[in-house]
Amino acid sequence: MSMLKIEGVHTFYGNIEALKGIDMEVNEGEIVTLIGANGAGKTTLLMTCCGSPQASKGRILFEGQDISRLPTHEICRLGIQQSPEGRRIFPRMSVYENLQMGASTQDPKYFEEDLEMVFDLFPRLKERINQRAGTMSGGEQQMLAIGRALMGRPRLLLLDEPSLGIAPLVVKQIFETIKKINREKKVTVFLVEQNAFHALKLAHRGYVMVNGNITLSGTGAELLANPEVRAAYLEGGH
């Protein structure tokens, strides 16, 4: 069953059409990745799913409900959480307070349990629990951003470039954790990435976006083997 279904979505920034009719879907239990060059519209698509900016045409269905006209905070309450581009953690608040913020829409009775779960996935966060989030390294901040999103008990997790500005070794670690979240916690993942190789290896299915259009789709392995994808995103100048 498709969990997130995007039908003919157009999004504009003023007069500029950033998304030119996108159709795609994310099925329950999948990891789906969207790859593309800078400025292709990947982040815009992810943010449109969250209602900021809103789609000017088309529908976005989450578990059958049209969410394209809902305000951001209501969409998030339906069970979609995101780790936004550039992480956007609360820099002056401690790690613990950041995680508390993530759980702010949830029943407090789940808090302890979810906190354990997040610390289990990212033991580093437990060591840093009282530290100010802004003083942590980029990788740790990314872990916190994902952990904070998980505190909101999502069924669909949107990740925007979790590898941005992070050491390769840590990227690998984070991607393994994403896999674990998907498999063990039964969270569906929609991953937007520039790091096409890692993302396609991880994902069940992938889409390729060029200038606001989806040009290719297929399973991760298919796309990895596709000569166009290889030329544009894997072998070309990184």
Partner: peptide, 23 residues
């Protein structure tokens, strides 16, 4: 929670919104 939401809002409004807080 309300006070913490204030402080979070001061830090980053977009992040708050994406965590389900009504700004």
């Amino acid at each position: 929670p309300i006070g913490r939401a204030w402080e979070a809002l001061r830090e980053d409004e977009i992040a708050c919104r994406s965590l389900g807080i009504n700004p």
